[in-house]
């Protein structure tokens, strides 16, 4: 039951962003699992392009919000302005009222502005001026942040980080991919020429299909064993929460769907584990930041398949 449309989506994106198959696949899995994505990386590695391309091929509306330190919640959510003609206040929806939001450099903004976005993400609605307005469906936030050690950042607290289903890094492309990029056609033009592969309603269908991907008892045992290990082994500061386990299972389901399977395999769990635990699990000996891939590998090798 391979889904050619998803393969086509991936192919389209991979044509524009070169050499990043895995992060791109994870980003799509995150979207299919109805989660939000956090990308932590240096400027210029293609974060914006990824968001742009993703919304384009999926036929979604796209808005970009550049976070700055003087940003206010109204700049994100929208504001009511007095209309002299009608003699009443009119709500002007903010940039968040769209299907794909790219929240760029989210850790440059103050916690107040950050939390306005994060609350909207969590509840999928905006309450302003006493009125609750639902956000469109699908609704997908791709937030990017600069590595925490950069100057002028407000790091997101762990509770806020937990609202992102996945955290990925794009990283520099390898030399071959970079060469192809430099020699190839203009990316902006390519993006503009992209056609939608799926429409929004189909995406909602797929999102629902993800939830019915089968997770066998043996697999759920495995997820539990992983969580149990993080809770008892002395290596970790705090174990994975039940919410983290749900996230792990949700992304693993989407990953299985991208692989064209109707059931989740331990390989799926292992493949998405780095993204799920990157912002949730801290090793005790973590000094600044450790490589999530290495952390996940250590966890995987410590837990036998049940």
């Amino acid at each position: 039951m391979r889904l050619p449309e998803l393969d086509a989506v991936l192919a389209d994106i991979n044509r524009i962003i070169l050499g990043k198959e895995r992060p791109i696949r994870l980003a799509l899995a995150c979207l299919l699992a109805r989660g939000h994505l956090l990308i932590e990386d240096l400027p210029g590695v293609g974060k914006t392009t990824l968001a742009h391309v993703l919304s384009k091929v999926l036929g979604l509306e796209f808005q970009r919000i550049q976070f700055t330190s003087d940003m206010l919640p109204a700049d994100i959510l929208g504001v009511s302005i007095f209309d002299r003609g009608s003699g009443a206040f009119h709500f002007h929806p903010g940039p968040i009222f769209t299907q794909v939001v790219l929240a760029d450099e989210i850790n440059r903004a103050t916690p107040k502005a950050q939390s306005a976005l994060l609350e909207a993400m969590e509840e999928r609605q905006v309450t302003a001026e006493g009125k609750t307005r639902p956000l469109p469906d699908p609704f997908f936030v791709i937030a990017t942040q600069n590595p925490a050690h950069q100057i002028g950042t407000f790091p997101l607290p762990e509770s806020q980080l937990d609202r992102f289903l996945l955290k990925i890094e794009l990283g520099y492309p390898d030399p071959a991919a970079e060469r192809e990029l430099l020699a190839g056609a203009d990316r902006q033009k390519m993006v503009a020429e992209l056609a939608a592969r799926i429409a929004a309603p189909r995406l909602v269908e797929l999102q629902q299909a993800v939830r019915s991907i089968h997770a066998a008892p043996a697999l759920i045992d495995y997820v539990q064993a992983l969580a149990a290990h993080t809770r008892t082994a002395p290596r970790w500061q705090a174990g994975l929460s039940p919410r983290a386990c749900l996230a792990l299972l949700a992304v693993a389901r989407a990953w299985a769907m991208l692989d064209g399977r109707d059931h989740v395999m331990p390989e799926d769990v292992q493949a998405v584990l780095p993204g799920v635990i990157a912002h949730r699990l801290r090793p005790v000996d973590d000094v600044a930041r450790s490589d999530p891939e290495a952390v996940a590998a250590a966890l995987i090798e410590a837990v036998p398949l049940p």
Binding site: M265, P266, E267, Q270, I300, E301, V303, P304, L305
Partner: peptide
Amino acid sequence: WRNWEGPLA
């Protein structure tokens, strides 16, 4: 076979 390894992998 390492006991944490998925069968397909």
